[in-house]
């Protein structure tokens, strides 16, 4: 079924345009990395702040106020550039298990980010003072940063494992 979907997407006019213009994929991937950097560095800063080290000059709510809007913006660009790459090379993504793991973790992270940002904005005082901070805050920080690491790892792995899976499932390479 996945093969039919991939074939259908690869046959669309948009996919052809993306495949034929040589710079679309490299530029899209580069923008993707720029935004990965924004999201990953922000998440690391927030996570370590919650764990009690790093960014000690600012409160949790100040960090949320300055980092979250940029994270949302970068996430939007990540989804858009990821979509461009998927439309251009659907088979590469769909045959690779790392892609589906990555998508699952991305959904989890989107929910975690929105939940965390809203919780801090609703009651900043509770998150700013270490003694009143919710008990799960440290666990949240570890999962939050850990999942972003796993997402980056899976993202980079797709570029290496996809041709192996395409070969296993005897799918024709779309190109390259």
């Amino acid at each position: 079924m996945v093969r039919e979907w991939a074939g259908w997407i690869a046959d669309t006019r948009l996919s052809h345009v993306f495949q034929e213009i040589s710079w679309v994929i490299p530029v899209s991937q580069s923008m993707h990395i720029v935004c990965v950097a924004i999201v990953f560095a922000s998440a690391s800063m927030l996570g370590t702040r919650l764990l009690g080290f790093g960014a000690s000059g600012r409160t949790v709510s100040q960090l949320v106020g300055s980092l979250i809007p940029w994270m949302y913006g970068a996430l939007a660009v990540l989804l858009l550039t990821g979509l461009v790459q998927t439309i251009a090379e659907p088979l590469r993504q769909f045959v690779t298990p790392e892609f589906w793991w990555k998508m699952l973790m991305v959904i989890c992270e989107l929910l975690l980010t929105v939940w965390f940002a809203r919780a801090v904005r609703r009651d900043p005082g509770r998150w700013d003072a270490a003694p009143t901070r919710p008990k799960g805050a440290r666990l949240f920080a570890v999962v939050f940063v850990g999942l972003w690491v796993a997402i980056v790892v899976c993202g980079r792995l797709i570029g290496y494992t996809w041709s192996y899976y395409a070969w296993i499932f005897r799918f024709p390479a779309v190109h390259g």
Binding site: I33, V34, V36, A37, I38, V39, F40, S44, V149, V152
Partner: peptide, 9 residues
């Protein structure tokens, strides 16, 4: 990649 993301970010 993880390191350069932190550098740039």
């Amino acid at each position: 990649v993880l390191a350069l993301a932190l550098v740039f970010g």
